[in-house]
């Protein structure tokens, strides 16, 4: 039996082997995804992002447990960074897993970024499609969390949870970091620590101000509705919920879980859910195209020799990178 056939029969080992094929970009991996795609579309993707040490792993595992309690099967993808120097990676997200059932109702895969810089691996979205096709009700995706804003998550997930801790700084810093823009639900973890209350209040204020500014800007047509804020929404209470948790003590995770699913219900009813999936599909098609273009054409734009000669010209002061690129592009077009 082929892996695909075994996959279709629900063989976990086949799922995990196929993930590797996709990660390794083995020959025909896109054809494989194409074959599987019709089975996908049902799984809800929840992304969890936030700074290092915020407790993302613990939260993801606690959320997974609550989903299991609701008889939902769960696929988890946890991403860790690949070292740019050695190509190696230490993937440690399983450490926090504890005792999950080994009956197939939960599947956990650690992924290394392998050079991608947006907080996920470039194969993460494809692996999530595989999860979906395999039949997991919920897909939980945890970003690298190295500190910088990890934007890939908004193009991969239906719902984004941003985890912050009292040490994350003040709301203005978060605003600057772009964290405000991507959260559907805020999780203020380690809420028992000093500074948590103040940060929540601060954040709530900032979010309200922002919502007001955005509402008026949208009505004046100055600003297009952002990602998860539905255009023309009448909902004046459109501010992002902030849930205070203590993941280590398993406190309030149920509230967070509920907030996530309430949000899901809301965006489904409003139609934003479908609208956002269409936006992501559009991006996905363009991304596949651009990768393909890169692979098939860009590498043929200039040979190594041509590049060497061009650099010589720049070094000797006869040309510059802009003119050289224009010439090479012209040359390429003529050739094709």
């Amino acid at each position: 039996m082929t892996l695909l056939e075994r996959f279709e029969l629900g063989d976990i080992r086949a799922l995990s082997r196929l993930i590797s094929h996709i990660e390794n970009r083995d020959t025909d991996f896109q054809k494989l995804l194409g074959r599987l795609y019709r089975r996908a579309g049902r799984s809800i993707r929840i992304g969890v992002t936030g700074p290092p040490g915020a407790g993302k792993s613990t939260l993801v595992n606690s959320l997974a447990r609550l989903c299991l309690d609701d008889s939902q099967s769960v696929g988890i993808i946890a991403v860790d960074p690949t070292s740019p120097f050695t190509g190696g990676a230490l993937l440690g997200d399983r450490v926090r897993m504890g005792d999950f059932p080994t009956d197939g109702s939960v599947f956990f895969r650690s992924m290394a970024t392998r050079g991608a810089s947006g907080g996920l691996a470039s194969a993460t979205d494809n692996v999530a499609i595989l999860y979906d096709a395999f039949g997991f009700d919920i897909t939980l995706i945890e970003t690298v969390g190295v500190g910088q804003v990890e934007l890939d998550i908004i193009d991969t997930c239906d719902i984004v949870v941003v985890v912050i801790v009292p040490e994350s700084g003040d709301a203005v810093q978060m605003l600057k970091a772009g964290l405000m823009e991507i959260a559907d639900v805020y999780c203020m973890n380690k809420a028992d620590r000093p500074g948590a209350e103040r940060l929540v209040a601060d954040l709530r204020n900032t979010l309200q101000t922002q919502a007001m500014v955005r509402a008026s800007a949208t009505s004046e047509g100055k600003l297009s509705a952002h990602h998860h804020t539905l255009a023309g929404s009448e909902d004046s209470d459109a501010t992002v919920p902030i849930i205070q948790t203590e993941a280590v003590n398993n406190k309030n995770i149920d509230t967070l879980h509920k907030a996530i699913f309430d949000h899901l219900k809301k965006i489904r009813e409003s139609g934003f859910f479908e609208q956002d999936r269409r936006r992501r599909l559009r991006k996905k098609i363009l991304s596949i195209l651009s990768n393909r273009f890169q692979a098939e054409f860009v590498n043929g734009l200039a040979s190594e020799d041509e590049l060497d000669r061009a650099i010589d010209q720049i070094a000797s002061g006869q040309s510059n990178p802009y003119d050289i690129s224009a010439q090479l592009f012209e040359h390429f077009l003529n050739r094709n």
Binding site: I12, R17, A89, G92, D99, T102, R109, S110, A112
Partner: peptide
Amino acid sequence: EVIYTGLRQTPEMIVDAAVQED
């Protein structure tokens, strides 16, 4: 790529992880 599972893993947990992580 090293997947570290941590301490006190039962044989079931280890093999389950090995299968999932391929």
